[in-house]
Amino acid sequence: MYLQDVALILQLIELDTYLEEVNENMSKKQVVSSTINGQQVEFLTEPQQSLLECLRDTLGLTGSKEGCNDGNCGACSVLIDDRLVNACLMLGMEIDGKDVVTVEGLSNIHELHPIQEAFVLEDGLQCGYCTPGFIVATKALLDKNANPTEDEIRFWLAGNLCRCTGYDKIVRSVRLASQLMNDANEDLQ
């Protein structure tokens, strides 16, 4: 046996122990602390758990939905530090120290967010399963662009699937939402 082979075997043994450790760590839960819907939250997550699983199963925030679990439907849309992301594509661990907004964070028991109000008024939903995702995505859009055109709305929402409405009433809802939000801003000024 040559010396370099011995070294290789030793390396492999090291790798084995390393992998064992990783495996052990994997099953260990980790503490994540972040701000969710304006509240400071600490929770435990297994390293492989998606943010969507953490929100829905650990934190009981079932407003974010799973439609595909692979980034193709937008039903799980949330805002992380004001950026629109698919919660099914992130790990729970990755929101440590971050600010998360889910659909539940937009309203309180007394008042709907103007975007939510607009979806209600324009019948922008049927089964409603895609709706939380659309509402969060709309918030991200209107935060960037207060007066989107129909094309801009359709382009922005192309990452969110709706199987029921055919999108027309959703686009109308977003237009109304932008109007309601602009009116509210004018009133403030």
Partner: peptide, 20 residues
């Protein structure tokens, strides 16, 4: 207005996948 609309736009409506 639809009776279920507000629950659905706020994420409160419980679907089959939400039952625990």
């Amino acid at each position: 207005e639809r009776m279920d609309a507000k629950d659905k736009v706020t994420g409160h409506a419980l679907y089959g996948t939400d039952i625990s």
